[in-house]
Design a protein around this nucleic acid. Structure first.
Lengths: 142, 142
DNA sequence: GTGATTGCAAATCCTTTGCAATCTG
DNA sequence: CAGATTGCAAAGGATTTGCAATCAC
């Protein structure tokens, strides 16, 4: 069973009605490794000539988040982006000067994850990570 | 020298002009351990009957962040908050269930810091990093 | 059928911007 | 004095909301 189907089955079980809109939105967000904003989802769906109202997308994403099926991240770009839970862990390196966002490989988080577990029995949520700092270009300007 | 004075001296050195508005904003944000939004800062200043335009506060906070004097958190819903912390670098492990905050030793971030530099030439801000996840107690409940 | 969900448009909220007036160095 | 910074008001962009129409169960 694909992840989007898992989500749908669970939602039905919890009493939510599965409309064609919800199905499309869930499929869009569950398929990729991307971080999608509400507007991104709209874009994805419009490519398939499936017109859906933005407000519906906002409502659905909010619902999926509240129900625990997607993560919600604010990348300092002014808009909220969502990802599914099976999206592999990785960090966002957000430059505080030029606002560029670099997706970093998950390996750089390994030791942090291990050490937090060993020292504090704390399980760091790797898919939630946004790290601020300075990118190469901006660092050199200082 | 107080931390706000340190900031001011540094800014002057970097060619910024120190206006009364900037001084007030810096004092407001440097004084507490709180996370303040632009509007919060306005509130603080209005208590002292110091009227400052919100746009100025936004511009100043943005500048202070870009220059590395304040930390910025976009994790809370809706609006951006800022903080200064003059004490040593450390990570906050924030449990997303019970909201408990564990202060972690900076060493657990070492490899992450190094790897981000090596792979992406990205300098991660180590101080006042907030990492979300599950603490020991809450992990066992799941 | 009935209550949940959608679409639409207007409303809100946070943040940014253009520009003339005002200050700092 | 020159250029940086402010205030103001208007613009901008993301997100939310009220309400009638529509759809899932």
């Amino acid at each position: 069973m694909s992840y989007s189907q898992t989500i749908i089955a669970n939602l039905r079980q919890r009493g939510y009605r599965i409309t064609s809109q919800r199905e499309l939105i869930i499929r869009a967000i569950a398929q990729g490794d991307l971080h999608l904003s509400a507007e991104d989802v709209l874009g994805e769906l419009q490519e398939q000539t499936q017109a859906i109202n933005l407000a519906t997308i906002y409502r659905t994403l909010e619902m999926l988040w509240a129900e625990g099926f997607v993560y919600r991240n604010d990348l300092s770009e002014g808009k909220t982006v969502y990802t599914t839970l099976d999206h592999g862990p990785h960090a966002h390196l957000v430059c505080r000067k030029c606002k560029r966002v670099i997706d970093a490989a998950p390996e750089i988080l390994q030791q942090l994850h291990e050490q937090a577990l060993i020292r504090y029995a704390f399980e760091v949520d790797l898919a939630h990570l946004s790290l601020f700092g300075l990118c190469a270009a901006c660092k050199d300007l200082v």
